[in-house]
Computed example of a mutant assay.
Amino acid sequence: MTQTLNKPAKAILFDKDGTLFDFQKTWAPWAAAMIADLARGEKAVLAKAGQAVPQDLDRQIAHTVGFDLDNGAFQADSLAVAGTAYEVAQALSQVITGLSDSEVLDYLMPSKMSMTPVVVPQLKQALEGLKQAGFRLGVVTNDFEHVAREHLEQVNISELFEVVIGCDSGHGAKPAPEGCLAAAAHLAVPAPDTYMVGDSLHDLEAAQRAGMRPIGVLTGTASRDDLAHLAAHVFADVADFVRFLTKSPL
């Protein structure tokens, strides 16, 4: 679906994980530890109740969330790539029987000690270039809003965004378009004058359904071929997109 991007735009919305942050570098180490912790917690509950304990529980959990334990990486079609923590917890309920859904969700909530965001190359410089060029910036993520804000603060870029919307902000989760539309409304920019940049089909579908310009980046788990049919253009990363957009080197 590659098309020209020369029509002026006024706002740019970004997904968070896989777009602002390198997905594998940020989340794979945390996921490996989370899977081990969750398996231990479930086994302890089952053993205490005198129930049979699956010996391959960690692999069952990994399979459910789409994580390759042997290679320490998320698979391209992982539910965790574009889904919400609620959706992951619901899927895990088919494997985890001793813990409640809320207890499983607790395991899926990373702390600052357990997860460190790894930004994509030249991110802050690229975002600052967009601000200087007059673009208004926002984040629309399927993560929780307060978690997203914490992550942006951790890497010192929170001040560059005027709006942050998460899956729990009252607008639903992508691929539903309402979060994107709410962000554009907050920025007072019409949807057709807004780019939505993301690494997953959920991001691009949300952009299309919102009437925005969908831009794909390759810092998640999807390939160029995966994204090309929904994206107006696919770039290597955010910096590559900004170089193209502003016609200036970073």
Results as ranks from 00 to 15, higher is better:
Met196Glu: 02
Gln154Pro: 00
Asn156Pro: 00
Gly166Asp: 09
Glu178Pro: 00
Leu108Trp: 01
Ser169Gly: 06
Ala185Phe: 00
Pro190Met: 10
Thr194Ser: 07
Gly211Val: 08
Val88Cys: 05
Phe161Ile: 09
Gln208Glu: 13
Gly198His: 11
Leu204Thr: 06
Leu105Met: 15
Pro175Glu: 08
Leu160Tyr: 12
Gln208Phe: 00
Met212Gly: 04
Ser200Trp: 08
Gly170Ser: 11
His202Ser: 15
Ala188Trp: 00
Leu130Trp: 12
Val189Tyr: 02
Ala188His: 14
Gly129Gln: 12
Ser93Glu: 09
Lys131Asp: 06
Arg136Gln: 14
Glu205His: 07
Ala148Ile: 06
Phe144His: 09
Thr194Tyr: 03
Glu162Gly: 15
Glu153Cys: 02
Met109His: 14
Ala185Lys: 14
Ala173Gln: 05
Leu160Glu: 07
Gly98Ser: 12
Leu152Thr: 07
Glu178Asn: 12
Gln75Thr: 08
Val81Lys: 01
Arg136Gly: 02
Asp106Cys: 06
Glu162Val: 01
Ile157Pro: 10
Arg136Ile: 09
Leu108Gln: 05
Met115His: 05
His186Arg: 13
Met196Asn: 05
Gln132Val: 13
Asp101Asn: 11
Asp193Trp: 03
Leu127Pro: 02
Val81Arg: 00
Val104Gln: 03
Gly129Asn: 10
Ile96Tyr: 01
Thr116Gln: 15
Phe74Pro: 04
Thr97Arg: 13
Leu187Asp: 02
Gly172Met: 04
Val139Ser: 09
Gln75His: 12
Ala148Asp: 01
Met196Asp: 08
Val140Ser: 11
Ile157Ser: 11
Gly172Gln: 06
Val164Arg: 04
Val164Glu: 07
Val95Cys: 06
Ala85Val: 15
Ala76His: 11
Gly98Phe: 11
Tyr86Met: 12
Asp143Glu: 15
Leu127Thr: 04
